[in-house]
Amino acid sequence: MQRYFLDEPVTTGQQLNLDATTYRHWVRVLRAEVGDQAEFVDSTAHLFHGELTRVTDDAATVTLTAVSTPAVELPVSVTIACGLPKQEKAEWITQKATELGVQHIIFFSGDWSVAKWQGNKVAKKLTRLNKIAAGAAEQAHRLIRPTVSYADNLAAVLQTPVTTTLVAYEESAKQGEQSALNQQLTHLRPGDSLLTIFGPEGGISPKEIQMAQQAGAALVGLGPRILRTETAPLYLLAAVSMVLELQQPR
């Protein structure tokens, strides 16, 4: 069943006029007819079934019915902070990280970032990335649309209020460290928040590593192999799911 996000809270039995984007996609593109249903998630992350009850040439109305909300979100709030990647990798990271359960994505200009986001283009890039995140969240049938933001440097990223901060550090992997990530994840509890920092293609500078450690971040390896900048965040999210979802008793 198709899923759409709403920007406001709704109640069961409510008659809802579809916004232009949803109308165009569901009614015009997918050719929905009166009696068809879609899923709607309101701004408080509650799930509703919406039955199409009226269609005109430029508008449509659905009647909403609340349904039980499945446990589809990770038990902890995960933020990934990625040094600016080259080319279109930011879009790829945003889409795939959303599918894997991320709640917040921060792209930051690292000391060794090759890519640069010009100030007058940041807003346009973020608009596109947030749109990609919203679409991926609908397709993955999530209850939360992740947010995508930009930070000028790592110092700004480290101001993010979280329970635990990690830095994915390739030198840890090179040195054979394989247990720190698992130890950090197993200490998390439902409702905690996790920030994990990933370097760009050029890596994380020694100055940034020192800054992160002074802020209380732990250095962790992501297995014995060296991962690309666009692969590392996905490894982390998959590990979070394995440790905190799949290995937990139901």
Rank of each mutant, 00 (worst) to 15 (best):
T164R: 07
E138M: 09
G135M: 04
A123T: 13
T163G: 15
P161S: 11
G110K: 03
K125F: 12
G135E: 15
T164W: 01
T147I: 03
V157Q: 00
D152K: 11
L166Y: 05
K121V: 07
Q159L: 12
G135D: 10
I132Q: 10
A133S: 06
W112L: 15
K125G: 09
R145P: 02
V122F: 00
K125E: 06
Q118P: 03
K121T: 11
P146F: 03
A137T: 10
V114Y: 07
L166V: 02
Y169A: 03
A156P: 01
I144H: 15
V148H: 06
V162C: 15
Q139P: 15
N130G: 06
Q118I: 08
G135R: 00
K131V: 00
K116R: 15
A123W: 02
G110P: 03
L166N: 06
V114K: 04
A168W: 07
P161V: 12
D152V: 12
G135I: 03
A137N: 09
T163W: 07
I144E: 13
A156G: 02
R128L: 09
L154H: 04
Q159E: 14
K116D: 12
T165V: 14
T160Q: 15
G110E: 02
R145T: 15
K124W: 02
V122Q: 01
V114T: 10
N120F: 10
E138D: 05
A137K: 09
L166T: 04
K125S: 10
R142H: 11
A168H: 04
W117P: 08
N120M: 06
A140V: 05
A155D: 15
S113E: 03
A140I: 06
E138A: 09
A133W: 00
Y169E: 05
